[in-house]
């Protein structure tokens, strides 16, 4: 200790301290962030996948995203978006973009699963990012839909509606309906945050929580509406519209019938 205290005024002491501090924070950060990126290492693609993916990418995506995915004025950089983002955007048909607009619209996918995987492999090779969730991540057999419902209402319902019927955002953007969306795409949307959606990484919603949410969505989708036709699950607007058109319409028809004999 004495040696340390004697050398604390050494000219190099400040530099040594700075170095130690940097090493410590850097190391801690590496450990902390490792938790999120651990999955990225687990799905390896072959060099051939990457090669094929690059060809597809150059032919179909490079116009907007640049020849090596660096991004252009019309499309964002894909470095670091990860394989999950490609799998989501291409797998749901949002990419390649049908037309410019407030946001990419869903359409029938243009590529099959294999081609999508190859493009994902190429984009994943550009920089580390979220990987396509594996079977284990999507296993909802022991998930709790009740907890998923609570997480959904707190995190998702403000845009997607409490029943997942979708909702409006600003300037023509919207949160889509969630019925009929595949589990893997729901998971990928949460970890990549496509369009205007925020990223819900594993620190925000744990993998277990994500499985619960998926289980909740599957439960409400597979449960038939208990009260009869659900009128789009759009809440009081469709109910009001229904009572004013169908309800009152039928009543008026009856009033006309009842008074038609006289007058």
């Amino acid at each position: 200790m004495k040696a340390l205290s004697q050398r604390r005024r050494h000219p190099l002491a400040a530099i040594a301290l700075l170095l130690m501090g940097l090493l410590l924070t850097g190391g801690l950060y590496a450990v902390a962030s490792g938790a999120n990126e651990a999955k990225a290492q687990s799905s390896p693609y072959t060099a051939e996948d990457v090669e094929e993916g690059k060809k597809l990418f150059v032919a179909n995506c490079a116009t907007c995203h640049g020849m090596s995915g660096q991004g252009t004025e019309t499309g964002p950089s894909l470095v670091g978006v990860g394989a999950a983002a490609v799998h989501f955007q291409v797998g749901t048909g949002r990419m390649p973009l049908q037309m410019q607009g407030p946001q990419a619209k869903e359409k029938p996918p243009q590529f099959n699963e294999e081609e999508t995987r190859q493009m994902a492999a190429y984009v994943a090779s550009l920089g580390p990012g979220p990987a396509i969730p594996g079977e284990k991540a999507l296993d909802t057999s022991d998930a709790d839909p009740g907890n998923g419902g609570q997480l959904f209402r707190v995190n998702c319902a403000m845009c997607h509606n409490a029943a997942g019927a979708g909702g409006a955002l600003t300037r023509g953007k919207f949160a889509p309906q969630l019925a009929g969306v595949e589990d893997v795409h729901v998971y990928e949307a949460m970890i990549t945050g496509p369009q205007n959606m925020p990223v819900f990484n594993d620190a925000t919603i744990s993998p277990q929580g994500k499985q619960d949410i998926i289980a909740f969505l599957n439960t409400i989708e597979s449960t038939p509406s208990p009260g009869g036709a659900d009128l789009g699950s759009l809440g009081p607007v469709s109910e009001g519209l229904f009572v004013w058109t169908a309800g009152l319409g039928v009543i008026i028809a009856f009033t006309i019938w009842l008074t038609s004999r006289s007058s």
Binding site: R153, M158, G167, G227, A229, D230, S233, L234, V237
Partner: peptide
Amino acid sequence: FTINPIWNYGPYDPSPISAGTQ
């Protein structure tokens, strides 16, 4: 025809809100 499917909305809690709240 369903009206006011309260089971969709969940219990009241001041933090969440649903799209299409009218």
